[in-house]
């Protein structure tokens, strides 16, 4: 099956400082992919760059294909069909994504008019259907309300409705629940998974919360300092992480049940993008680093079916395995 989106060698630099250093990622139709990593790891920039949403001074290179068509550097007219149409995006802070002086109806209808061939009353009917779909009670009346009349969770529901206006094939949800309370987060995540199932939509869930990603995605990619360091089906990643950084992230998460253990904190901090170490970017913080880690950056290599890791230790053990198999 050809992937819906395939990203190859995507790099971004802001005024000469590389923040994304060669990201390769593919996403199938209807698949839910999680993207985790700490702040500054390039999770959001990957998708902002792919959709041409970065400011002009950002230097973007590489390739982003949507259904086989290159969209990186595509003309604005073509991108306008992609953004909001085939690919929709929702953000962490829904309140600032809505216009406070326009009613919800105006804003929803604007999205519908841009991306759907609807006329007159059909637009309003569709706007109402969308609000219903995302679980806003009394949708007909609430269309005339302004953003401030809704709670944080409801505003995020409205953002989801607007994202669905163009019938997208892919929804990119960038920290959609980070600003919400725990019980509201559970509601929004459930809504996202229902909508995805019903519309057969693919989803990229960007989050710093490993638990959120583990529960809602089929596959997870872990990013560190502008690169993907490990990619695996989510159950496998959390049961058996291979990359030391992925291991560190999971070890740093306090357990909610069972005996308490001392957290395995990753020492040090994320490197400054302007002073990226040679070789593997994680090596200075890695407890397992050897001298060779400082020479060349390891590339993402397959270690098992559907699993790739960028770590020379993993590569070495894989070669050993292959060697045994060859004999």
């Amino acid at each position: 099956m050809s992937p819906l989106v395939s990203i190859a060698g995507l790099s971004v630099a802001f005024s000469g400082v590389p923040v994304l250093r060669g990201v390769d990622l593919a996403l199938g139709k209807g698949e839910a992919l999680g993207l985790v990593g700490e702040s500054g790891s390039g999770k959001s920039v990957t998708w902002l760059a792919a959709l041409g949403l970065l400011p002009r001074h950002a230097k973007v290179s590489g390739s982003v294909r949507l259904d086989g068509r290159e969209i990186l550097g595509a003309p604005a007219a073509e991108l306008d069909q992609v953004r909001g149409g085939r690919v929709a995006m929702i953000f962490q802070d829904p309140a600032s994504a809505l216009n406070p002086v326009l009613t919800i109806r105006k804003q929803l209808c604007e999205a519908l008019a841009l991306h759907r061939d609807l006329q007159g009353n059909a637009v309003k009917a569709e706007a109402r259907r969308l609000l219903d779909l995302v679980g806003i009670p009394d949708a007909g009346r609430r269309l005339e309300a302004y953003p401030h009349e809704f709670s944080g969770g409801q505003v995020q529901r409205i953002m989801i409705a607007m994202a669905l206006a163009g019938n997208p094939d892919l929804l990119i949800a960038d920290e959609p629940t980070t600003a919400l309370d725990a019980t509201i987060q559970a509601q929004i995540l459930e809504l996202l998974s229902t909508v995805r199932r019903e519309m057969g939509m693919a989803m990229v869930l960007i989050s710093h919360d490993l638990g959120v990603v583990a529960e809602n995605c089929d596959r997870v990619a872990v990013m560190y300092a502008g690169r993907i360091v490990e990619q695996a089906p989510s159950n496998q990643l959390f049961a058996d992480p291979v990359h030391p950084y992925a291991q560190g992230l999971i070890g740093a998460l306090p357990p909610l049940d069972g005996p308490r253990r001392r957290l395995t904190a990753i020492p040090g901090t994320v490197p400054d993008p302007a002073m990226m170490p040679d070789g593997c970017a994680f090596a200075p913080r890695c407890t397992l680093a050897s001298e060779s880690c400082g020479h060349t950056a390891p590339s993402l290599a397959p270690i098992a079916d559907g699993r790739t890791v960028a770590c020379i230790r993993a590569e070495a053990s894989r070669r050993a395995l292959l060697g045994i198999a060859a004999e």
Binding site: A182, T183, A186, S193, L210, G211, A214, E215, N235, I250
Partner: peptide, 10 residues
């Protein structure tokens, strides 16, 4: 129950 945990589906 709303606290997401790796290795547990929703």
């Amino acid at each position: 129950s709303a606290s997401p945990a790796p290795g547990r589906r929703s």
